[in-house]
Lab assay of single mutants.
Amino acid sequence: NQASVVANQLIPINVALTLVMMRSEVVTPVGIPAEDIPRLVSMQVNRAVPLGTTLMPDMVKGYA
């Protein structure tokens, strides 16, 4: 099963993503693939993302 990107903490809106904010985990439904974590660094989410939430492509500005 493919690992997805999961919030490692509350990720506020309009804050640049850092490695420490994200972890990889096998979850259902599948979200952004874990291998895209380096690409996500410095991008921003378009809504607050609670701890443990799977990041979906539509949550990250400029990802999709």
Rank of each mutant, 00 (worst) to 15 (best):
residue 1 N to M: 15
residue 1 N to I: 15
residue 1 N to A: 14
residue 1 N to R: 04
residue 1 N to P: 15
residue 1 N to S: 15
residue 2 Q to F: 14
residue 2 Q to C: 15
residue 2 Q to W: 11
residue 3 A to W: 10
residue 3 A to K: 08
residue 3 A to T: 08
residue 3 A to H: 10
residue 3 A to I: 07
residue 3 A to P: 10
residue 3 A to N: 06
residue 3 A to Y: 13
residue 4 S to E: 01
residue 4 S to V: 02
residue 4 S to H: 01
residue 4 S to P: 01
residue 4 S to M: 02
residue 4 S to T: 04
residue 4 S to F: 03
residue 4 S to R: 02
residue 4 S to Y: 03
residue 5 V to L: 03
residue 5 V to D: 01
residue 5 V to M: 01
residue 5 V to H: 02
residue 5 V to W: 03
residue 5 V to G: 01
residue 5 V to N: 02
residue 5 V to R: 01
residue 6 V to W: 02
residue 6 V to M: 04
residue 6 V to G: 01
residue 6 V to D: 01
residue 6 V to P: 01
residue 7 A to I: 03
residue 7 A to N: 01
residue 7 A to Y: 02
residue 7 A to K: 02
residue 7 A to Q: 01
residue 7 A to T: 09
residue 7 A to F: 03
residue 7 A to R: 02
residue 8 N to F: 03
residue 8 N to E: 08
residue 8 N to S: 12
residue 8 N to P: 02
residue 8 N to I: 05
residue 9 Q to D: 09
residue 9 Q to E: 11
residue 9 Q to H: 08
residue 9 Q to N: 06
residue 9 Q to S: 11
residue 9 Q to F: 07
residue 9 Q to K: 13
residue 9 Q to I: 09
residue 9 Q to R: 12
residue 10 L to N: 13
residue 10 L to M: 15
residue 10 L to D: 15
residue 10 L to T: 11
residue 11 I to W: 02
residue 11 I to M: 06
residue 11 I to L: 15
residue 11 I to S: 01
residue 12 P to L: 05
residue 12 P to Y: 04
residue 12 P to M: 06
residue 13 I to Y: 15
residue 13 I to V: 10
residue 13 I to R: 09
residue 13 I to N: 12
residue 14 N to Q: 09
residue 14 N to W: 10
residue 14 N to V: 03
residue 14 N to T: 06
residue 14 N to C: 10
residue 14 N to E: 09
residue 14 N to A: 09
residue 14 N to P: 00
residue 15 V to I: 15
residue 15 V to D: 07
residue 15 V to E: 14
residue 15 V to T: 15
residue 15 V to L: 06
residue 15 V to Y: 15
residue 15 V to H: 11
residue 15 V to R: 13
residue 16 A to L: 09
residue 16 A to W: 10
residue 16 A to E: 09
residue 16 A to T: 08
residue 16 A to P: 12
residue 17 L to T: 00
residue 17 L to S: 00
residue 17 L to E: 00
residue 17 L to N: 00
residue 17 L to Y: 01
residue 17 L to P: 00
residue 17 L to M: 12
residue 17 L to H: 00
residue 18 T to Q: 11
residue 18 T to I: 06
residue 18 T to M: 07
residue 18 T to P: 00
residue 18 T to H: 05
residue 18 T to L: 06
residue 19 L to K: 07
residue 19 L to S: 07
residue 19 L to H: 06
residue 19 L to M: 14
residue 19 L to D: 05
residue 19 L to Y: 13
residue 20 V to G: 12
residue 20 V to E: 07
residue 20 V to Q: 12
residue 20 V to N: 15
residue 20 V to D: 10
residue 20 V to Y: 15
residue 20 V to I: 13
residue 20 V to R: 15
residue 21 M to L: 04
residue 21 M to V: 03
residue 21 M to Q: 04
residue 21 M to D: 04
residue 21 M to P: 00
residue 21 M to H: 07
residue 21 M to E: 00
residue 21 M to F: 04
residue 22 M to P: 00
residue 22 M to Q: 00
residue 22 M to A: 00
residue 22 M to I: 10
residue 23 R to V: 05
residue 23 R to Y: 05
residue 23 R to Q: 04
residue 23 R to S: 06
residue 23 R to D: 04
residue 23 R to M: 04
residue 24 S to W: 08
residue 24 S to T: 14
residue 24 S to A: 14
residue 24 S to N: 07
residue 24 S to Q: 11
residue 25 E to A: 14
residue 25 E to T: 07
residue 25 E to N: 08
residue 25 E to I: 06
residue 26 V to S: 13
residue 26 V to Q: 11
residue 26 V to W: 13
residue 26 V to R: 05
residue 26 V to C: 08
residue 26 V to H: 10
residue 26 V to P: 08
residue 27 V to Q: 04
residue 27 V to G: 03
residue 27 V to D: 01
residue 27 V to E: 02
residue 27 V to T: 12
residue 27 V to Y: 03
residue 27 V to C: 05
residue 28 T to K: 06
residue 28 T to I: 10
residue 28 T to L: 08
residue 28 T to F: 10
residue 28 T to W: 07
residue 28 T to Q: 08
residue 28 T to Y: 12
residue 28 T to V: 13
residue 29 P to I: 05
residue 29 P to A: 04
residue 29 P to H: 05
residue 29 P to C: 05
residue 29 P to R: 04
residue 29 P to F: 03
residue 29 P to L: 05
residue 29 P to K: 05
residue 29 P to M: 04
residue 30 V to I: 13
residue 30 V to T: 14
residue 31 G to Y: 02
residue 31 G to P: 00
residue 31 G to E: 01
residue 31 G to N: 01
residue 31 G to D: 01
residue 31 G to M: 02
residue 31 G to C: 03
residue 31 G to L: 02
residue 32 I to A: 01
residue 32 I to N: 00
residue 32 I to K: 00
residue 32 I to R: 00
residue 33 P to S: 08
residue 33 P to L: 07
residue 33 P to C: 07
residue 33 P to E: 04
residue 33 P to R: 07
residue 34 A to P: 06
residue 34 A to I: 06
residue 34 A to M: 07
residue 34 A to K: 06
residue 34 A to G: 08
residue 34 A to F: 05
residue 34 A to H: 12
residue 34 A to C: 08
residue 35 E to R: 07
residue 35 E to T: 14
residue 35 E to P: 07
residue 35 E to L: 09
residue 35 E to A: 11
residue 35 E to W: 08
residue 36 D to R: 06
residue 36 D to V: 08
residue 36 D to Y: 12
residue 36 D to P: 01
residue 36 D to F: 14
residue 36 D to H: 15
residue 36 D to Q: 14
residue 36 D to M: 11
residue 37 I to N: 00
residue 37 I to H: 01
residue 37 I to C: 05
residue 38 P to Q: 11
residue 38 P to K: 11
residue 38 P to A: 12
residue 38 P to S: 14
residue 38 P to R: 10
residue 38 P to N: 13
residue 38 P to Y: 11
residue 38 P to H: 13
residue 38 P to T: 13
residue 38 P to F: 11
residue 38 P to D: 08
residue 39 R to H: 08
residue 39 R to S: 07
residue 39 R to P: 01
residue 39 R to L: 11
residue 40 L to D: 02
residue 40 L to N: 00
residue 40 L to Q: 00
residue 41 V to H: 04
residue 41 V to T: 07
residue 41 V to A: 05
residue 41 V to K: 05
residue 41 V to S: 02
residue 41 V to Y: 05
residue 41 V to W: 03
residue 41 V to I: 14
residue 42 S to W: 13
residue 42 S to C: 15
residue 42 S to Q: 12
residue 42 S to D: 11
residue 42 S to T: 11
residue 42 S to I: 03
residue 43 M to P: 00
residue 43 M to F: 12
residue 43 M to C: 06
residue 43 M to H: 11
residue 43 M to N: 04
residue 43 M to Q: 08
residue 43 M to Y: 12
residue 43 M to A: 12
residue 44 Q to E: 13
residue 44 Q to G: 05
residue 44 Q to L: 12
residue 44 Q to R: 15
residue 45 V to A: 05
residue 45 V to S: 07
residue 45 V to H: 00
residue 45 V to G: 00
residue 45 V to Q: 00
residue 46 N to Q: 12
residue 46 N to G: 08
residue 46 N to P: 02
residue 46 N to W: 12
residue 46 N to F: 13
residue 46 N to I: 12
residue 47 R to M: 14
residue 47 R to F: 07
residue 47 R to S: 08
residue 47 R to K: 13
residue 47 R to G: 05
residue 47 R to A: 07
residue 47 R to W: 07
residue 47 R to N: 08
residue 48 A to E: 14
residue 48 A to P: 13
residue 49 V to Y: 02
residue 49 V to L: 11
residue 49 V to Q: 01
residue 49 V to I: 12
residue 49 V to R: 02
residue 49 V to E: 01
residue 49 V to N: 02
residue 49 V to G: 01
residue 50 P to W: 05
residue 50 P to A: 09
residue 50 P to S: 08
residue 50 P to T: 10
residue 50 P to K: 09
residue 50 P to Q: 09
residue 50 P to C: 07
residue 50 P to R: 08
residue 50 P to E: 11
residue 51 L to S: 13
residue 51 L to G: 09
residue 51 L to H: 10
residue 52 G to D: 09
residue 52 G to M: 04
residue 52 G to S: 07
residue 52 G to Q: 04
residue 52 G to W: 04
residue 52 G to R: 04
residue 52 G to T: 02
residue 52 G to A: 07
residue 53 T to L: 11
residue 53 T to C: 10
residue 53 T to K: 07
residue 53 T to G: 12
residue 53 T to Q: 15
residue 53 T to D: 10
residue 53 T to A: 13
residue 53 T to I: 09
residue 53 T to S: 08
residue 54 T to D: 01
residue 54 T to Q: 03
residue 54 T to F: 03
residue 54 T to N: 00
residue 54 T to G: 02
residue 54 T to L: 04
residue 55 L to P: 02
residue 55 L to T: 01
residue 55 L to Q: 01
residue 55 L to W: 02
residue 55 L to M: 15
residue 55 L to C: 03
residue 55 L to R: 01
residue 55 L to D: 01
residue 56 M to S: 06
residue 56 M to E: 06
residue 56 M to Q: 12
residue 56 M to I: 07
residue 56 M to Y: 11
residue 56 M to G: 05
residue 56 M to R: 11
residue 56 M to T: 12
residue 57 P to G: 07
residue 57 P to D: 05
residue 57 P to C: 07
residue 57 P to W: 09
residue 58 D to I: 09
residue 58 D to C: 13
residue 58 D to H: 13
residue 58 D to F: 15
residue 58 D to K: 09
residue 58 D to Y: 11
residue 58 D to G: 09
residue 58 D to R: 07
residue 58 D to M: 12
residue 59 M to G: 03
residue 59 M to K: 00
residue 59 M to A: 07
residue 59 M to C: 05
residue 59 M to I: 05
residue 59 M to N: 05
residue 59 M to R: 03
residue 60 V to N: 02
residue 60 V to P: 01
residue 60 V to D: 02
residue 60 V to R: 00
residue 60 V to A: 01
residue 60 V to K: 01
residue 61 K to F: 09
residue 61 K to R: 14
residue 61 K to A: 12
residue 61 K to T: 15
residue 61 K to V: 10
residue 61 K to W: 10
residue 61 K to Y: 09
residue 61 K to E: 09
residue 61 K to C: 15
residue 62 G to D: 13
residue 62 G to Y: 11
residue 62 G to N: 12
residue 63 Y to I: 04
residue 63 Y to P: 04
residue 63 Y to C: 04
residue 63 Y to N: 04
residue 63 Y to S: 04
residue 64 A to R: 08
residue 64 A to C: 15
residue 64 A to T: 14
residue 64 A to N: 11
residue 64 A to I: 13
residue 64 A to L: 12
residue 64 A to D: 09
